[in-house]
Design a protein around this nucleic acid. Sequence first.
DNA 1: ATCAAAATTTTACTCGCGTAAATTTTATTA
DNA 2: TAATAAAATTTACGCGAGTAAAATTTTGAT
Lengths: 343, 343
Amino acid sequence: MSQPEIRNMEEFAAISGISRPTVSKYFHDPTSVRKTTRMRIEAALEKYDYRPNIYAMNQNRKLTKNIGIVVPYLADPFFGEMVRMIEGRCIEAGFTPSLFSAHGDQAHENDILDSLRSMKPAGVLLAPLGRQSDKSAIETFCKHVPTVLFDSNIEGMGEAFVGSDNHSFVSQSVEYLSRTGETPCFFEMRTPANPNANKRRIAYLSMMERLGLEPHVVKIDGTGWGFEEIGRQGGFQVLAEKSLPTNTVLCSNDRLAIGFLSACYESGVRVGRGPECQLRVASHDDHPFSRFTCPSLTTAAHDYTAVSDNAVETLFRLIESGGRLENRTESLFPARLIMRDSA
Amino acid sequence: MSQPEIRNMEEFAAISGISRPTVSKYFHDPTSVRKTTRMRIEAALEKYDYRPNIYAMNQNRKLTKNIGIVVPYLADPFFGEMVRMIEGRCIEAGFTPSLFSAHGDQAHENDILDSLRSMKPAGVLLAPLGRQSDKSAIETFCKHVPTVLFDSNIEGMGEAFVGSDNHSFVSQSVEYLSRTGETPCFFEMRTPANPNANKRRIAYLSMMERLGLEPHVVKIDGTGWGFEEIGRQGGFQVLAEKSLPTNTVLCSNDRLAIGFLSACYESGVRVGRGPECQLRVASHDDHPFSRFTCPSLTTAAHDYTAVSDNAVETLFRLIESGGRLENRTESLFPARLIMRDSA
DNA sequence: ATCAAAATTTTACTCGCGTAAATTTTATTA
DNA sequence: TAATAAAATTTACGCGAGTAAAATTTTGAT
């Protein structure tokens, strides 16, 4: 930092004794200029804290160094965690991530896609709302912007999908539960917001058939993204009605399970593996809070690192190949069963 | 949408039969052009879906329509909720919010402030890391960018602070707990990340003195932003040592309490008001998950709406008055005691 | 030391829009 | 209806960079 204020790249180039276009090259890729040039620029950079005007930079660039990250619901710590890992990878690679949350609202998701288009991002990592998404809006968006979908797949949209293998989640949890106790029933929302929920139900049914067990799906009412409250109310209801077909409940996801466990607690229903317990509860996701439920939640964990790393790597490949991939790939990562106290 | 692709505002202006600068005015404020002009532009807008290049727009603008929102840790649903409300208000007012999370890391926070500066935002709403923040970096930033601090105050920085009144939180919880049972001890991290924690301890001590009760502060070890795990480990320790001075524990914040409750549950310590309970636990924040703990958590709630609305309004006032306010104001909103089952 | 090839730097032009000042149009008043 | 003030529009220029092509320097083999 020094006295004379540098107003633009012209002035900065003059001071460092190099032509402006060369300085411009430097800012795009410091290794693209001669070592001696780079050192002169970096020396000047220490004296006069100049930085290029990002708006002027991006104006004439067909492709910016921005990456859009869109999640459906940021108040869910699962996405907070995913975003943390993804952002880190993007920054490492020299990109500038921009974060957006649809906050569970379709109109908001569409607005995000709109403003994202005018940002001319190099690429976008999109976890769509799912059932609530405006499919045609997403389709149009993906035609214009190199996009990798993650977490929640929408058939055929985006150049690739990266997520977790729902079948792996459910097969492990069902296998474990049925091996160690009563047949699990499947506890889910009647109209799930997320396509993963459907895949999990289907996986449950097929797994039960394979094991020669009778499936029971318990569907509870409720809409929106307040899954915990929905699980809680659904829990109160099935407990009051005593309508649970078995003593083992497999929740579609951890947030439902968190609500269900609170209903159990308040209803005086003891949950866990022990002989004094009336109910076993398990679930899927390994939500950041699932280890703090009472009892701690047995669940199938996403491979957070693999999913986020692979999503980012896929996007980078997509960007490098000019925005289109040969064929749409779907990468699914298996779950890891986390045995805790609830089942 | 139509065939001929509009490449820039020049072409769009030609097609709508209006001069480019007038079209430019329209995009900044549609009401600033004559009604007949506006209608002609909007008619053309429907036929040819043109949108201005945001980078070219902002390049020569002294002030953009961007608003930066910075939070310390997005995996905490408290911030997810705050962000949701703040973003909504900004969009309503015609601004474009950009969201950033420091993910608990000082270097990351500094990087965010850096890139935020080059975005020339109209204003920034900053919830700093707190103790971990690089004070001088924040100070420098605030000198260059109109900034309102929220949630976590740093003395003298930013043009204003908007947050919750920690004294109100603690006085209500302490009053309630001591009126209805044993004297509460105060459960907190030895080196809290957030300045609110210090204010709460001080409020606890002064409140106890006012009530003529002996204060007990229980300090637990642990660093970072994994408060639940810290509360849990601290809980195991004090329960094992039987070192709790009273049967009533007032946690500094809900996330610690969530961890503490899980330790109680696993240790077989019954928490609640009933005669069969060994411990009462209360806390502060009304974290989105606090109603789903076992038992549900008695806590003092932030006025989320008031804080977020006031923060945004303060920032708008700041922007309108050119980036400086007469004197730095600190707006503190009182808490509301939420009685649930844990105390 | 020489000279062509490769790497780097410079020249020269463009991009898409903001904005002050000048001009024209519209609204107001008498 | 004419005069005049107010509002809207146009003219004219600048901003801060990207980038292709030309010019220069460096490299490397002889």
